[in-house]
């Protein structure tokens, strides 16, 4: 049963990532694109966790943590760039 649920979850998260890519391409403004990337990295974390359960290993959690930290910092940097025109003042 877990296998079926796992495959369903992977399918749904992948579909979600595709929808994010649609928003990333369509825009129409820069904040929309940044928001799409922000959601995309959170979906990537979900996919990594699902992959970890599928393979029965917890090795990938470290990379999920790294993506979480880096994704947040890059979102903040991009938002700040859009607002001020520079990242570090």
């Amino acid at each position: 049963m877990i296998t079926i649920a796992l495959n369903l979850a992977i399918a749904m998260v992948t579909l979600a990532a595709l929808l994010n890519v649609y928003r990333l391409i369509k825009g129409p403004d820069e904040p929309d694109r940044v928001l799409a990337i922000d959601t995309l990295y959170i979906n990537a974390i979900a996919l990594i966790i699902l992959l970890g359960i599928t393979l029965g290993t917890r090795m990938y959690l470290e990379s999920a943590l790294l993506i979480a930290v880096m994704g947040f910092v890059s979102t903040v940097a991009m938002a700040k760039y859009l607002k001020r025109g520079s990242v570090i003042e």
Partner: peptide, 16 residues
């Protein structure tokens, strides 16, 4: 798993 996947999908549908 299904709950989580569904909510992630709903979030993305909202975004789109």
């Amino acid at each position: 798993l299904i709950f989580g996947g569904a909510f992630t999908l709903v979030g993305a549908i909202g975004l789109a």
